[in-house]
Design a protein around this nucleic acid. Structure first.
Length: 441
RNA sequence: CGGAGUGUAGCGCAGUCUGGUAGCGCACCUGCUUCGGGAGCAGGGGGUCGGAGGUUCGAAUCCUCUCACUCCGACCA
């Protein structure tokens, strides 16, 4: 993409409404624009990052055997009246009336709807287990939205729902999601620590939340340092290996990890040696629940078992805050100059900086590199706009692409370009004809 | 929902107390000189001062009502 043809409205000054770093940097980098409190438009670079995260989440859900569906944002109130949550959910649910004066709502979550879908489609235990998920916009009318996309009212969420014949079978479904979450966050370039959690308004018995560490996190976290050193992205995981998956989960859950809400200082000190006690702040990016028959009973979701008797299915739900992750990653990965994107989610793989637009030799050298990279399938942002070098460097650092290739008249005389790593700041002079070879698959 | 604030150009702000031609910096446009970490000179465009009523010869400024947004708290993916 040529910057001269792109839409990326960079702000030089900090917008005053943005208090935390991710909100500030996302606004400055031209990724998002606020439309109302907790409600954002996603501009091209922000949207690209959002889509990349979404795709990684999708791939890991699919790998774990979950099946993608898509449910509507607007739901009939009837379903919620049946589960008893229509009155229980409170003002956070945005209630709407349609032209026929029927009660509708903008879905804050989908347990009722998916349970209804599943009930209609499955009658036999032979059709279990199943896990259905979708990636859809939700709306929760928070009293006080804040922190940009980290705590908006409208947000993109992946939510999966498992259906099993028994508590024991359901445990495996839960464990599979647990492991898939570890893999997902690792692929995103994050270390997310699973912690015991409150079940909150979703309800249920077993629950873990996944938090990424960031100074600005909303929760205090206390955990065993061993969790940080563990292998987060197991390659070749076999999701059909019930015992193996359970052992992996056990490896995590057996170690102490809790948010301040659940923290027990005495237990922490008893179970974790002083040298390994880690504390800090975290941002919740995923939450998994096992709630048994909490929804299947009121929703009448039964299947016929091998003995001919009807059984309520056991279910769980599994959320990942996809749009929240965009802000979360920025919180976890930035410096004074701007964002530092992990390669897997960067809006472009690299930036090509033409330091002197209008200088024929520089223009030609940049065009050649740009076209060769494009031909190779490298997603590159080419800054071909007129302007001073300083401003270009600052903008490139701000938007945080993992690599920068800088071409100017000075280096060109020596036949070299400068390749800079955004994260480490390391610069290297690379002969022009070798630049393209550095990037791509 | 309690408390505290803020609404003036795309962004950041001054002007409001004490009513009298709507300003500054950045950004933007034109030209020239520049050009390796946010350049200089010259010229230029851009505003229903959040909205509605009211007071007044005259309102960004005073009064009333209203809307929006931000921050702290309680609540949350």
């Amino acid at each position: 993409m040529r910057l001269s043809q792109y839409f990326m409205p960079i702000l030089r000054d900090d917008p005053k409404e943005a208090e935390i770093v991710s909100h500030r940097l996302m606004l400055r980098a031209g990724m998002i624009r606020q439309e109302a409190a907790g409600n954002y438009s996603w501009l091209p670079t922000g949207f690209k990052v959002l889509k990349k995260i979404e795709q990684i989440v999708r791939e890991e859900q699919d790998r774990a055997g979950a099946l993608e569906v898509l449910m509507p944002t607007i739901q009939p109130a009837e379903l919620w009246k049946k589960s008893g949550r229509y009155d229980a959910y409170g003002k956070e649910m945005l209630r709407i009336k349609d032209r026929h004066d029927r009660d509708m709502l903008f879905g804050p979550t989908n347990e009722e709807m998916i349970t209804d879908i599943f009930r209609q489609g499955v009658q036999s235990y032979k059709d279990l287990p199943r896990n259905l998920y979708h990636i859809q916009w939700k709306f929760r009318d928070e009293v006080r939205p804040r922190f940009g996309v980290m705590r908006g009212r409208e947000f993109l969420m992946k939510d999966a729902y498992s259906f099993d014949i028994s508590r024991e079978a359901g445990q495996h479904s839960y464990n599979k999601m647990f492991v898939s979450y570890l893999r997902t966050f690792a692929r995103l370039g994050l270390k997310a620590v699973p912690m015991r959690a409150e079940t909150g308004p979703i309800g249920g018995s077993d629950s873990h939340e996944f938090l990424i560490l960031a100074e600005t996190g909303e929760s205090g976290v206390f955990f065993d340092g061993d969790l940080h050193g563990m292998d987060w992205e197991k390659s070749g995981v076999n999701y059909d290996d019930v015992a193996g998956i359970a052992a992996m989960v056990e490896g995590f859950t057996s170690r102490y990890a809790a948010t301040d809400e659940k923290h027990d200082a005495a237990e922490f000190e008893r179970r974790v040696p002083e040298a390994k006690r880690m504390t800090g702040r975290g941002i919740e990016v995923g939450h998994i629940f096992f709630f048994g028959t909490k929804y299947s009973e009121p929703m009448g979701c039964e299947v016929q078992g091998p003995d001919g008797k009807k059984l309520f299915v056991h279910s769980g739900s599994y959320g990942i805050g996809v749009s929240r992750l965009v802000g979360g990653i920025v919180e976890a990965s930035h410096d004074d100059a701007g964002i530092i994107w992990p390669e897997a989610v960067a809006p472009f793989q690299m930036g090509l900086v033409n330091i002197k637009v209008g200088d024929a030799a520089v223009d030609v050298a940049c065009s050649r590199i740009y076209e060769a990279l494009q031909a190779k399938g490298v997603d590159v942002l080419y800054d071909d706009k007129e302007g001073g070098a300083g401003g270009k460097f600052a903008a490139m650092d701000l938007i945080g692409l993992p690599w920068q290739v800088i071409v100017g008249p000075r280096g060109l005389k020596e036949g070299i370009a400068e390749v800079k790593n955004r994260k480490t700041g390391a610069r290297e002079n690379v002969p022009l004809d070798q630049v393209v070879g550095r990037f791509g698959a």
